[in-house]
């Protein structure tokens, strides 16, 4: 057991993956000497060399596109996209090649690459630095999307993602980079694609992922003070979603609230609601609600608190599902 921040846990996880397999290499902007703008790759180039910790030219399609070639060659590249809002130049490569080459080559190519994207808001940034693009990738067949929410998950999930043979979009909640937590260096807590009950409860199921999990847990604590027992599930895997524990929870509580920073329209949150409505129809005592960012471009960060799902908005949704006549 060790206490560390999520950024450090990712760094340690990457280090261990680099040690375990010489085919693992990192590519991204400013990840070498600087150690990445969030210092997630701090010190790695010094220890593993410039051939494995590759400071790339400033072009995201180039980072992903060349990583595809490295993967074809048998490497396991880990790309870093500096910020969520800068992944779009790489969108073509991700959707047209990363997601499809395994299928197009009838399984001959393994697209064993990980694309790390610091995502989400709550950091008071300027435009393009607070977005939640996970839905685009979750929508694309051939990709998997995961998001750790604790240092322990970060340490293990990055290693699990690197050893996985499918391409994985690894969404890191950047507002949690500096939160400390216990990391078990010996044993992974659970599988890469397993959801996790972050807090148990009996009245309402709140499902969240990434940066929203902590917000949801805090909302659950506040609800508890009001005599309501809220269960919080950390989805961890955004695609595929791990529905069985979600189904079990909703069958228990009969009420569902889904929380995410990304706007609800055609989103991961909407998929959670659709699927759980399908699977838990006879258990739902109230319509499932989504608490998400509003359908606007990500706002100037001085008003992001009002834009994002916060404790008040989650509690309001809990009130609404609890107050629904049934």
């Amino acid at each position: 057991m060790a206490q560390m921040t999520m950024a450090k846990a990712l760094n340690e996880g990457l280090r261990r993956a680099l040690e375990d397999n010489p085919k693992v290499l990192l590519m991204g902007e400013d990840i070498g000497k600087l150690g990445g703008v969030f210092r997630v790759t701090d010190g790695l180039q010094k220890d593993f060399g410039e051939d494995r910790i590759i400071d790339s030219p400033l072009a995201e399609s180039g980072i992903v596109g060349t990583s595809v070639g490295l993967a074809i060659r048998g490497y396991r590249p880990v790309c870093e996209i500096q910020f969520d809002g800068f992944v779009y130049p790489a969108f073509d490569q991700i959707v047209s090649q990363v997601a499809k080459l395994h299928s197009r080559s009838h399984g001959v190519y393994k697209m064993a690459l990980v694309i790390r994207i610091p995502f989400g808001g709550q950091i008071g940034a300027i435009e393009h630095h607070s977005e939640s693009p996970e839905g685009y990738f979750a929508h694309t067949a051939g990709l998997r999307v995961v998001s750790p929410t604790t240092p322990n998950d970060a340490y293990w999930m990055i290693q699990q993602a690197i050893t996985h043979d499918d391409p994985i979009i690894f969404c890191e909640p950047k507002c949690r980079y500096w939160e400390k937590g216990e990391v078990d260096l010996d044993r992974p807590p659970r599988g890469l694609f397993d959801a996790h009950v972050a807090r148990e409860g009996t009245d309402v199921t709140v499902i969240a992922y990434g940066p929203s999990v902590r917000t949801a847990v805090r909302a659950a604590e506040a609800a508890s003070a009001e005599g309501r027992s809220v269960e919080v599930i950390d989805a961890r895997s955004i695609a595929p979603l791990d529905f069985p524990p979600m189904v079990a929870s909703v069958q228990k509580t009969g009420r569902l609230v889904v929380v995410a920073e990304a706007p609800a329209n055609a989103s991961v949150a909407s998929e959670v609601v659709a699927r759980l409505t399908e699977e838990c129809f006879y258990s739902l005592r109230a319509p499932a609600l989504r608490v998400t960012g509003y359908h606007t471009p990500y706002p100037p960060s001085r008003v992001e608190e009002e834009y994002l799902p916060n404790i008040d908005r989650i509690l309001d949704a809990v009130d609404r599902v609890m107050g629904f006549e049934s």
């Binding site: 399609s61 596109g65 060349t66 595809v68 070639g69 490295l70 074809i72 060659r73 490497y75």
Partner: peptide, 11 residues
């Protein structure tokens, strides 16, 4: 073109 360069970097 990018995929090929990546492959070449692997080589």
């Amino acid at each position: 073109a990018l995929n090929a360069v990546g492959y070449a970097m692997g080589v």
